[in-house]
Simulated assay, not measured.
Amino acid sequence: MSIAPDADTIIVGAGPAGMACAIELAAAGCRVIVLDMQPSPGGQIFRALETNMQARPGADELLSALGPSYKAGLALVTRFRATPGIDYRPGTTVWDLRADGTVGWLKGDAAGYLRAPHVVVASGAMERPAPFPGWTLPGVMTAGAVQTLLKAGRLKPNGRIVLAGTGPLIFLLADQLRRLGVRPALIARTDGAWDKVAALGRLRPAGLPALLKGLGWLLRLRLAGVTMRTGISGLEAHGHDHIESVRLTVAGSRIELPCDLLVVHDGIVPSTDLAHAAGLALAWRADDGSWQPVTMPDGRAEMAPGPT
């Protein structure tokens, strides 16, 4: 006896991609269930957007610091909420995904399974933490974690702050902190001059707006007097029950700086835990050192080859 599906499509994740997919499918007449572990839609990019907008004018300083791109997500969130045919289930953790479209879920003390002929995995990306001496000390955080505290907790750090790593999120966060009146003591970049030259060869016209936005962050940080160093290595965090200083190598010299908060970021990688659980084929991307699901030209995921 066959079991009737619970929906035409189950979407895992209510970030920008998951919301946009749900809207399009529901508009086409599909029954859609959206499962998301967060309490409200938006994902990491638009985290707590509705709450912060409702808290105005108390949240105006934060909204101004996060910039227009953050507030622009409200149109998508509003449309997602208003679209008929979307069964949105927040606060729900997906812990199992099977190749036949069975999805295991957990919410509070309740748990169960849902089934659909189609499942869309929109679980996004995750930061790639790189271990270094002292990385488990209290006061060492990733850039994404600090952004979570800004958006969801309306908290801002104080004291001597060092940002270390590479990628645009470091500069975006530093500029947001600057707007909140928090000036980092140092931005320690692990990329060097040669990395910038090599990256120019991969630049495409579609990437120019993002490049110009990044240059704007750098310019504003420079004008604010934020110190930056490139090509740093040998990062270490030191302290007893919390971070007290950082050590690093700059231009061949070993230096130590007092530090109350060390923010690290080494890029993001696709979140592949559910894809792996479903037995999907994964391909290694040597250019950024990550795995990603293998998809067909129509977007469907390929299954990993079975044992021979």
Rank of each mutant, 00 (worst) to 15 (best):
M1S: 14
A7C: 12
T9H: 03
I10V: 15
I10K: 04
G15E: 05
G15P: 03
C21Y: 10
I23V: 15
I23M: 09
E24N: 13
A27Y: 01
A28H: 03
G29L: 10
V32Y: 06
V32E: 02
M37S: 15
Q38P: 01
G42M: 00
Q44T: 13
A48H: 15
L49C: 13
E50V: 11
T51C: 11
T51I: 00
T51M: 12
N52I: 00
M53A: 02
M53Y: 02
P57A: 00
A59C: 10
A59Y: 09
A59M: 10
D60C: 03
L62M: 13
A65I: 03
G67M: 08
Y70D: 09
A75F: 05
L76K: 12
T78W: 01
R79I: 08
R81F: 00
T83N: 09
T83V: 13
P84D: 08
G85P: 02
I86A: 05
P90S: 04
P90E: 04
D96S: 11
L97A: 11
R98E: 09
G101P: 00
G101A: 05
T102I: 04
V103D: 01
G108V: 00
G108S: 01
A110R: 13
R115H: 14
A116W: 06
P117N: 10
V119F: 07
V120Y: 08
V120C: 10
V120S: 03
V120A: 06
M126N: 03
E127R: 02
P129W: 10
P129F: 06
P129A: 15
P131T: 08
P131I: 08
F132S: 08
P133E: 15
T136E: 11
M141D: 10
T142K: 08
T148R: 12
G153D: 11
G159Y: 02
V162L: 01
L163M: 09
L172K: 12
L173K: 07
L177P: 03
R178P: 07
L180R: 08
L186P: 00
L186A: 07
I187L: 14
R189H: 14
W194E: 15
L200Y: 07
G201W: 09
G201Y: 11
R204C: 06
R204V: 12
P205Q: 13
A206E: 14
A210P: 06
L211Q: 00
L212G: 03
L212T: 07
G214F: 00
L215D: 02
G216R: 04
V226R: 05
R229N: 04
R229Q: 14
R229G: 09
T230Y: 12
G231E: 04
G231D: 07
G234M: 08
E236K: 13
E236T: 12
H238K: 15
H238I: 11
G239M: 08
H240E: 15
H240L: 14
I243L: 05
R247W: 00
V250T: 14
S253K: 13
R254P: 08
E256P: 04
L257Q: 05
L262N: 04
L262P: 02
V263T: 05
V264K: 05
I268N: 14
D273K: 07
L274D: 02
A277V: 05
L282A: 08
A283G: 08
W284R: 06
R285L: 09
A286P: 07
D287K: 10
D287Y: 03
D288K: 12
G289H: 10
S290M: 01
W291Y: 15
P293Q: 12
T295S: 13
P297G: 04
G299I: 15
R300L: 11
M303C: 03
P305S: 07
P307F: 05
